[in-house]
Design a protein around this nucleic acid. Structure first.
Length: 350
DNA sequence: TCTGGGGTCCTTTATCGG
DNA sequence: TCTGCCGATAAAGGACCC
């Protein structure tokens, strides 16, 4: 297997720069309101010089660089650019698995029989993407998804990193363990506490130590990936299995009338999305986030699918009330989700 | 005054019928 | 009647990703 991971550089910010070239020389933050509770979605490289990065609160970003330009994300615009990018990529490499608007895997085994040829194909992809969209990307090429993904991030922006087969473990070894996909804040904390700070150190762990630090199937999988072993192939684009809407309030809310009104607005949006796609949902879930950031969810399933805003809203409000009886308190966020989706016309009995 | 919004997948626990 | 146990399914929570 020869697979490439392609990642568009600072995608949202790069698109905004194309739309308004004056932004190119300025620190740019695409995200929420810097005076509210938003976080940074993407910062351009000018802003990153000030230590601003994704997931940072916008208030913090403003503090670090008071003359930053803040822009709200324009997702439909990014979708258009993304579509153009991936159409262009498919012109060179037909088998592609998109994993986000701005990233995906390319099957180079289809078009190159060795890593030397794969490098040239990857160069060609970068060139055509830049020519077609003026966007730059970084690409990693390797024998597995996990190695390709880390390689694409290795030399950003605009980088190309090829890891020939046989060199996977040595390539991965020096990186911080947090760089391994699947290691989030929790796993990182456990690993660091056990003195495991690099991917190489994780790879070198014995079975017993591994089970003590990261028990279960997650631990085994991460241990394998740390050695560059990753059996995943490219997948077909999967169907959506859930839809949800959520909103964080400017200030925490306790008023049930206001909360219900918010849920009903969200139900309207979900109903619209369901109807637009000709689907119904069997399960409705309500999510609550309290002032202390803890999360509760309540869900209920019906025997038949629904797409009606009234019904979804009614159920969502009832679930909220139930949750608030179990645990009263001020809420900073509520959300509604639907799952158990089925297509209208082809009610396939399984 | 920290900490978004959209998702997926996995694990644990509760519940129910046999 | 009481008590496991098994398997299925729903509900809830948690971790993670972009």
């Amino acid at each position: 297997m020869i697979v490439a991971h392609l990642d568009l550089d600072a995608f949202f910010a790069a698109v905004e720069e194309l739309e308004d070239p004056d932004l190119r020389t300025k620190p740019l933050v695409v995200g929420g309101d810097p005076h509210g509770r938003g976080v940074v979605a993407t910062a351009n490289y000018e802003a990153r010089k000030f230590g601003i990065h994704s997931a940072m609160s916008c208030a913090e970003a403003l503090r670090r660089c008071p003359h930053s330009v803040f822009i709200r994300p324009r997702h439909s615009l990014y979708r258009e650019y993304s579509q153009h990018v991936w159409e262009t990529v498919r012109g060179v490499v037909p088998t592609v698995e998109r994993t986000g608007l701005d990233e995906g895997y390319l099957d180079l085994g289809d078009v190159a029989e060795h890593f030397l040829a794969a490098r040239e194909v990857a160069e060609a992809v970068k060139t055509v993407v830049q020519a077609a969209t003026s966007l730059t990307c970084s690409i990693g090429v390797a024998s597995s998804k996990v190695v390709a993904k880390i390689a694409s991030d290795h030399r950003k922006p605009g980088g190309l990193t090829v890891v020939p087969s046989g060199h996977e473990a040595a390539f991965l070894a020096p990186f911080d363990v947090r760089r391994l996909p699947g290691v989030g804040p929790k796993a990182e904390e456990r690993l660091l506490a056990a003195g495991v700070d690099t991917i190489g150190a994780l790879a070198a762990l014995g079975d017993g130590e591994l089970r003590a630090v990261l028990p279960g199937s997650v631990g085994r999988m991460l241990h394998e990936r740390a050695r560059g072993i990753d059996p995943r192939g490219l997948e077909q684009q999967a169907q959506r299995i859930s839809l949800s809407v959520e909103n964080t309030f400017e200030r925490d809310l306790t008023d049930r009338g206001q909360l219900h009104a918010e849920l009903r607005r969200m139900a309207e949006r979900l109903s619209g999305a369901l109807r637009d796609s000709g689907r119904t949902a069997r399960t409705v879930s309500t999510k609550l986030r309290y002032s202390d950031f803890s999360i509760r969810t309540r869900s209920t399933s019906l025997r038949v699918g629904i797409d009606d805003a009234e019904q979804i809203g009614e159920l969502a409000c009832a679930l909220l009330d139930r949750a608030l009886v179990d645990r009263p308190g001020a809420l900073r966020l509520v959300g509604v989700g639907v799952s158990g989706l089925a297509s209208h016309r082809q009610l396939a009995l399984v």
